[in-house]
């Protein structure tokens, strides 16, 4: 059963058709990557799922419930969580506070400190727990935000370029962490450019192009698809 489904999802910005009738299904328990050249409409598709933009037409279903018009914070409470491309952390608060804000509304007060500790250890951020989040290195900021997203105990985790700016080692470690989460039952949908990372984690890959689904399949099928290679080089666009 799909955890997330979009039906004929359309988004127009004035005269610009950014999302063009997307029919997409994400199976429960799947790790799915969304790729596509710049301007393919990946970020807009994410924002539609999150409720930051409302679609011009079409439907979004989450666990078979229609959430097309549901407010963003309510979608989050129903088990969707997101990590943005640019680290969205609270810079003037310390690392532990950042985690606390993510945890405090579903963890009992008596267990809060313990849970914060567990997550900080998991993220290797324990030594910098009292530092301001704004002073962390880029990689640490990315991890902190992943930690906040994971701290919500989501059923569906959305990641917008989770490894941007990370070293190959950090990228690999992030992939392993996501696989561990996936084994615990978290469904993952990630926008990603790093093909090594996509190969590491993705069960299935969807290629978006000009706001439409261009191709779908396993990473090997996608890599073997000449048309996909062509759109990355701009040829399909010219045809």
């Amino acid at each position: 059963m799909p955890i997330l489904e979009t039906r004929a999802l359309n988004k127009w910005f004035g005269g610009l058709h950014v999302t063009g009738g997307v029919d997409f299904a994400l199976e429960t328990g799947e790790m799915h990557c969304l790729i596509g050249p710049n301007g393919a409409g990946k970020s807009t598709f994410f924002r539609l799922i999150l409720g930051e933009h409302l679609p011009t037409s079409g439907q979004i279903l989450y666990n078979s419930h229609d959430i097309t018009l549901t407010k963003s914070y309510e979608r989050i409470r129903h088990g969707i969580s997101v990590k943005f491309q640019v680290p969205g952390i609270f810079k003037a608060l310390n690392v532990a506070q950042n985690i606390q804000i993510a945890l405090q509304h579903h963890v009992a007060p008596a267990e809060l400190d313990h849970e914060i500790d567990l997550l900080l250890n998991f993220l290797n951020l324990k030594p910098v727990a009292r530092q301001l989040a704004g002073n962390l290195s880029h990689g640490q900021k990315q991890w902190l935000e992943i930690g906040m997203a994971v701290g919500l105990k989501p059923k569906l985790l959305l990641l917008d370029e989770p490894t941007a700016g990370m070293t190959p080692d950090e990228t690999f470690a992030t992939g392993e962490m996501l696989q561990a989460l996936n084994r615990e039952g978290v469904t993952v949908l990630a926008v990603e450019h790093d093909m090594a990372f996509v190969r590491q984690i993705a069960h299935r890959v969807t290629v978006l192009h000009l706001g439409k689904i261009f191709a779908q399949g396993t990473i090997d099928e996608i890599v073997a698809n000449e048309q996909v290679a062509a759109i990355y080089l701009g040829e399909a666009h010219a045809q």
Binding site: L50, E52, K71, S72, Y73, I76, R77, S81, V82, F84, G88, I89, F90, K91, A92, L93, Q97, Q100, I101, A102, Q104, H105, M148, L152
Partner: peptide, 24 residues
């Protein structure tokens, strides 16, 4: 308090606060 944490979080980054499930 928890309330205080959230209002400071909203000052810092309202989008992130909303995406942690708070009605900003």
């Amino acid at each position: 308090s928890r309330f205080g944490n959230v209002i400071v979080a909203i000052r810092e980054n309202p989008q992130r606060a909303e995406m942690l499930g708070y009605d900003v």
